[in-house]
Amino acid sequence: MGRSHRPHRRGDRHDESSPDSGERVLVLPGDQVAGHGWKPGRGTYRVGDRVFASVLGLYQPRPPLAQVVPLNGRYIPKEGDEVIGTVVDVQGTFWLLNIGAPRWAPLHMTGTPWSIEIGETQKYLHVGDAVLVRVESLDPTGRIGVTMLGDDLGKLEGGTIITVSPAKIPRVIGRGASMIQTITRLTGARVAVGRNGRIWIDGPPEAIQRVAESLRLIDDEGHRPGLTERVESYLAATASSADVLMRSTPRSLVDAAPEREGPEPDRSGPEDP
């Protein structure tokens, strides 16, 4: 996607997911969004020389493309996205994962760091297990290929998973991962963020609770300004003696060694049989 050359508003975010700062009008399916000379982009369709919205979303034209960015809906996979899935079926050579997309995604045993004999898949992952994987391939019939080969990827042991709207994930991560770093710093929890709106949290129950509440705040109020401040003040207000030590770490120290985005998920599979 070509970056717009329009000037950014103050406070606008500069990561790739940042929307164009142009006019953003809420449109509904069937609303006419453009006339002659426009091409139908995503979230739109054309009848004659008129372009209509096909989904509920914000109209963000990029001439000559009329497009509507949806505000809701299922996670639509993109190649390269890191997503959190749960195993829904185990077959001889692959597992089927629910990643919240329209279809289940097969994870083939060759896409894992483990050397597995055919038929031994169930020794490694069971129905209900959570994994952090990357979307590797997409085809026009909607098939989604995922892999577990990659630096942060692997099985997620323990912890709990919270779901937010996939549209809010850029807010959860924040500019340059600032939001997620704030949350992990102030709670001490380990967090993995999936582009599909699922967020894995591990740590003491009270830390998990506080992360979950922060995420709910982002999910419900992500559009209002001053989000980071509100999350910070919530986390400060709920800080207990258990993590006073965490909070008293000088900020400069934390900032000097920025955490990686996301956690260090457990990469170890089960002990080799």
Binding site: R24, L26, L71, A167, P170, G222, H223
Partner: peptide, 15 residues
């Protein structure tokens, strides 16, 4: 009804 829902909670949400 749809506008009421999305202008109060999500109008400025990110894509």
């Amino acid at each position: 009804a749809l506008r009421a829902r999305y202008t109060t909670t999500d109008a400025g949400a990110d894509a």
